[in-house]
Every structure is written in C-alpha cells, then in structure tokens.
Write a protein that binds this DNA or RNA. Structure first.
Length: 354
DNA sequence: AAAATCCGCAACCGCGGGAGA
DNA sequence: ATCTCCCGCGGTTGCGGATTT
C-alpha cells in the first residue's frame, strides 16, 4: 500500500502532530494562506504531505473551530440532517458552524450509534418533554414537499445540478432554523391541532405522489396522512412494505422493526448501526409476523448485555427502530398512524456495501 | 495494583471528481 | 480525448486515556 501521491517522498512524517508542527503550520497559513496544499509542507518547513497538512488545519487548527461537547441543539440538528442527507458529513458539517465533518462523523459513529443500540424505555407515563412529541401530529409543509421532491430528484437524476443541491440545502437550513410552519388546513385526515413539532423532527423525503384511488386500505389511507406519505408503489407491494428511497439511497431496503419489544430493548440494524427509526409517540408498534424474528433479535441483544443507562434523551425517546431485514407491515403502519407519530429518523445506510 | 477491555478521537487511506495541460 | 495533479469526501484504523475486571 503506497501512500498518497503527494506523500511518496521520503522523510514524510506520519502520525500525531507535535505542537511544533502545529505552530509551523499555523504560522505559515495565517501569513500566507494555503493556496496549494501540496506546496504548504515545503514552504512551512514541515515534513508532512500536503494532504496531512490540510487535514490537520481543517480538523484541528482552524481558528474558527469549535471544540467540546455537542450541544443538545447540535445533536438534534445532526439527527435531522442525517435523516435527510445520510452520511454526507461534510454537508451536515456545513450546517454546524465550527464543527468539522470528521468530528460529526466520529460523534455519530460512537455516541449516536450507541444510543441506537440502547433504545428508549417506552414509559406509559410520559415526561413533560415528551408530551410535546407524543401529542404532536405529523405534518406536511410546502417546504418538506419541496425538499422531498428535490431529494428524490437529486437521488434519481444523474443530471442534478449544483443549483438544485443548493436549493435543497437552503430549504433544509430554513426549515431547521425557523419555527415550525402551520399545518395545512383542511383535509380529511387533518391531524388534531397540537403543539408544533420540535426542532429535531426531520423532513420526510418520500415520494409524495398521490396513491391510486383504488387503494382503500388503512395503508393506502396513510397517503392522506400528512406525515406518512409513503409511495403508492411501496404500499402496493404486499410482499414487502419497504420504505421508498430517500436522498441518495437513504432508506433503501429498510423495513420496519419492532418498537415495543419486551424489556424495551431494541436493536438497530446490523452492519455497523445501519438503522432507521420512527417515532411512535411513545407507543409501541408491532408487526405480528415479526414476533419470531424479533424474539431472536431480542435474545441477541440481551446476550450483548444490558442497558443500565437508559436512553433519556428527549429527541430519541420515541424512536421506533427499523432494521433492514424486516418488513414494514400494514399492522405496523396502522399502529403508527393511530399513535400520532411525530418523528421518523433514518439512521446510517449501508447502501455502499456489496 | 495490574491487566484487560472499552471508547473517543485524531489521523490515514482510497476513491471520485474537477481543472488544467 | 486523455492524462495528471490536486482537492475533498467518506470509511477505516490505531493510539491513548478511561473504565472495568
């Protein structure tokens, strides 16, 4: 395994940076800038490759870098953005000033993944904070529809333009920074008027095209649900009620997983925490035919040891775990609908895996 | 107290894409 | 049209401190 082309020279140092090296790099960049990274090491008197210098500067030495723990708001933002764009860490980082993609990636891979593995305790007595989400209805907004359409387009079209990516970016930014828009008026499936969803509720990037009129099942009625607008195609396939793809393959092949398992234990999808979750307003939702699979999984989970530390984060309290080897069944959907679910959270996807 | 294990984080690696020759 | 260089990104590794046994 050779090093990167810029690192082929002899005497290129690797590993941790010393304070002296940091100082040299800072001094050089603050006085000269970094026009061409490949030239930086030589001009700065460093025995590093340009790539290493760039990484060190961007991830650690930049003056505007923000260090320390992620705040609750940042955490929610990460969750929401990840639900939309998936593992595009640089994209997510662009919405979190002072945070680097590397930092967010590490954060997600450790902390949030751990949370997904240690699911919430579904208490019947809701907390004060959860009262917001349990009563919050699904909502659909013009912005989310636009984002959904854009997301679908960017995913499916090889000719998507930079402007379209920027547009999606703008919508995301706006939606995450402005107060939740009012619910659309009217509609036979209008949700009850309740408090707006909290910040952490992400968009749904599903196809919002109307279902065939022939569909009259509860599943089909979900199309009218402003918050659960799955594709008609997905709903029409009895064998596998899989969620339609989100942006860049997010949600591909993801299917429903039990959310009210015994002992409140849930497991995210395997393959390194590839999981999605759906809030269910504090209620469990089961697919009966999933029970056996679930039990098997539960046993595996229990063998892994138990969650003594409970998942008490508000933003994660009502997540229904999904796994990519299980199916989203009509009964699941009905249960979700009746529970006035407020959050759909899509975890990392593994569509890159073979 | 020492060894083993876990976990967070910094850094590396490989790949894809854009720009320029 | 092709090649080369460089940048930026996501995935992965490995170090070192913290925690557990």
């Amino acid at each position: 395994m050779g090093h990167h082309s810029c690192c082929n020279q002899q005497k290129v140092k690797r590993g941790l940076w010393s304070p002296e090296e940091d100082e040299k790099l800072i001094r050089y960049i603050t006085t000269h800038g970094y026009g061409c990274w490949s030239e930086v090491p030589e001009k700065a008197g460093l025995q590093r490759c340009g790539k290493s210098c760039r990484l060190r500067w961007i991830n650690y030495l930049r003056p505007d870098i923000r260090r320390g723990r992620f705040s609750a708001e940042e955490e929610k933002l990460i969750i929401s953005l990840h639900a939309i764009v998936g593992n595009r860490w640089a994209h997510i980082a662009s919405h979190l000033p002072g945070r680097t993609d590397n930092e967010i990636k590490n954060y997600w891979n450790s902390w949030i993944k751990k949370k997904i593995r240690k699911p919430p305790v579904m208490s019947t007595t809701t907390t004060t904070s959860s009262s917001v989400t349990t009563s919050s209805p699904p909502r659909s907004t013009a912005a989310s529809d636009t984002a959904a359409a854009l997301g679908h387009h960017l995913q499916t079209s090889p000719f998507a333009t930079t402007a379209e990516h920027l547009q999606l970016d703008a919508i995301i930014s706006q939606s995450l920074s402005l107060p939740p828009p009012k619910l659309a008026a009217g509609g036979e499936h209008s949700p009850p008027a309740t408090a707006p969803l909290p910040l952490h509720c992400p968009f749904f990037m599903f196809d919002t095209s109307p279902p065939p009129s022939s569909l009259t099942s509860p599943v089909a009625q979900l199309h009218q649900h402003p918050f659960l607008t799955f594709t008609a195609a997905a709903m029409e396939t009895p064998a596998s009620y899989q969620l339609p793809p989100l942006v860049d393959g997010i949600g591909m092949g993801m299917t429903a997983m039990d959310c009210s398992g015994h002992d409140h234990h849930h497991q995210a999808g395997s393959n390194g925490g590839q999981a999605a979750a759906m809030a269910n307003g504090g209620r469990g939702c089961y697919g009966q035919q999933q029970q056996q699979q679930q039990q098997q999984k539960q046993e595996e989970v229990e063998q892994l040891g138990h969650e003594e530390d409970q998942w008490d984060d508000e933003s994660a309290q009502h997540l229904l775990m999904w796994d990519d080897d299980q199916e989203l069944t009509p009964s699941n959907l009905e249960a979700m609908e009746s529970g006035a679910h407020s959050l759909l959270f899509m975890g990392p996807n593994d569509h890159h895996h073979a």
